[in-house]
Design a protein around this nucleic acid. Structure first.
Lengths: 219, 219
DNA sequence: AGAATAGTGTCTATAAGACACTATAAG
DNA sequence: CTTATAGTGTCTTATAGACACTATTCT
C-alpha cells in the first residue's frame, strides 16, 4: 500500500438512567496509555472476529460489561494526529442505551457509572465523544422513540414523560405529552397496571416495535 | 499492538445541481482494485499531511477536482470484511455540496457528474454511501439552510424554493416558503435584483452566515 | 394593454399548550 | 371523605396551507 496507516479503534458511550440521572459507563484502563485512569470502553478491531465496526462495538461491550444493550448506534468518527499518544488515530465512536436493571452487576473497581453532569477528567477526546453523544441523544429524543430504550419493556406514561424530560432537559406538558405520544403510535398498552400509592393505578405500555421510530412532528 | 489492522480510507460524495437535477461526482479509478471503473473520489489517510479525516477529505477533493467546496460534513463510517477485496476495511465517508459554477472544469475522461436518479453500477459499497448521503441531504434540508450551499452566493427566493423542492422531492407552497424562510432569518436581502423576462424583477438574497443554520420548525 | 413573475394580505384548518374536570385507587 | 395520580374534554393560540389580490417589469 505504501502508506503508514493510522491506528483504528472503537469507543462506546453506554448510557443509562440511575435515579433519574443520565449516566455513562466508564472503565478503568487496564493497559497503557493512561493505564488505571477512567475512560470509555473501547478497543481495536479484530479482523478475524468482527463482521464490521458495529460488531466490534458489540464485542467491546460484551467484554467489558454484562449489559443487555437495548440500542446501539454509530455516533461519529474522531481522528487526528494529536488525540492519541500512540500516533495518528481513528476512533469510530458508538453510543448505546440500556435500562439500569439490564446493565447487570457493575464491579466498582473496574467500572463506574458517572453522571454526565459531573464527569471526571478523561483521556483522549473521550469528553468530546460523550458531549457529542449527549447532544445526539437530546436532539434525536425530540423526534423519536429513543428514550424508551432507557426504560424496561413496560412502563407508564408518567415514567416515559420523566425520561423524556430528563434526557431533553425541561418540562413537558402532561396532557400534550400523552396526546402526542399516543398519536405517534409508537407505544401500545399492555395488560396490567402499576399501583403504589393512594391514587389511581396507571396503564402500562410497551414499544410497538424494536426498531427506533421517528415522529412526524417534534414534541 | 499485536493486531492486524484494517485498511482505512476516506470517500467523498460531492453533490451539485445541474439543470435542476441532483448529481454526484464520479472519478475513473486510476489504480486497482476496480481500475478504470467509475467510483466516488477517495483515498488513504496520509498521516504526514492530513491533520484529521476532514483534512483527508479536503485533500482528496483538491487532488481530484478543481471545486471550491461550499459545504463538507462527515457522513458515516462504513466497514467490514467484505466491502473491499483488499481485506477488512474502514471507509469514513463525507458528503460535500458545491454550486455548479464553482465545480470548475470537469474532464470527461477522468470525471463525470452522474444524476443520483440514474447511477451506474459502482464498486465497493459506493452506491450505499450515495444513498445514505442523499437521505441525509433530504432530511437535513427540511430543517436547515443546507440547500443554499448548492446555489451561488446570491439567489432569489424562487431559485431557493426550486432547490429545496429538488433536494427534498415534492412541491412547496410559494407563500408559505417565503414566509417561513424569511422568519428563520438565515438569509438577508442584498442590493440588486434579477430581471430577465416580461415580469417584475426579484430581490436577491444571500446566506447570513457561512455556518449551517438549523430551523426551529420544519418546512 | 397583456403577460408573467414578485410580493402581500387574509381566511381556514390543524396542532400544541393550558387547564379544568372526571376517574380510581389507598388510607 | 380525603389525597394523589391517571385520564379526558375543551378553549385558546400559533402556524402552515390555500388563495386571492396587488406590484412591477417587458413586450
Amino acid at each position: 500500500m505504501g502508506f503508514e496507516q493510522p491506528i483504528a479503534t472503537v469507543d462506546v458511550a453506554l448510557f443509562t438512567l440511575r435515579e433519574g440521572e443520565l449516566c455513562v459507563l466508564l472503565n478503568r484502563r487496564e493497559k497503557p496509555p493512561y493505564q488505571d485512569t477512567w475512560a470509555l470502553p473501547g478497543g481495536f478491531v479484530h479482523v478475524q472476529e468482527d463482521e464490521d465496526l458495529t460488531g466490534t462495538a458489540r464485542r467491546v461491550l460484551r467484554e467489558k460489561t454484562r449489559a443487555k444493550v437495548a440500542y446501539l448506534e454509530q455516533l461519529y468518527t474522531f481522528s487526528g494526529a494529536a488525540r492519541d499518544p500512540r500516533g495518528w488515530s481513528i476512533s469510530v465512536s458508538y453510543y448505546a442505551l440500556v435500562p439500569l436493571h439490564a446493565l447487570g452487576e457493575v464491579d466498582n473497581t473496574h467500572a463506574m457509572l458517572a453522571p454526565v453532569s459531573s464527569l471526571p477528567s478523561l483521556p483522549f477526546d473521550h469528553s468530546a465523544i460523550i458531549g457529542t453523544a449527549v447532544d445526539r441523544l437530546r436532539n434525536k429524543s425530540s423526534y423519536s422513540s429513543l428514550p424508551t430504550y432507557l426504560l424496561p419493556t413496560t412502563f407508564t406514561l408518567a415514567e416515559l414523560k420523566k425520561v423524556y424530560e430528563q434526557v431533553m432537559g425541561g418540562a413537558l406538558d402532561r396532557t400534550s405529552f400523552r396526546r402526542n405520544m399516543l398519536a405517534q403510535e409508537v407505544i401500545e398498552p399492555v395488560e396490567g397496571a402499576t399501583r403504589g400509592g393512594a391514587h389511581r393505578p396507571a396503564q402500562l405500555y410497551r414499544r410497538k416495535s424494536d426498531q427506533l421510530q421517528q415522529f412526524a412532528r417534534v414534541l
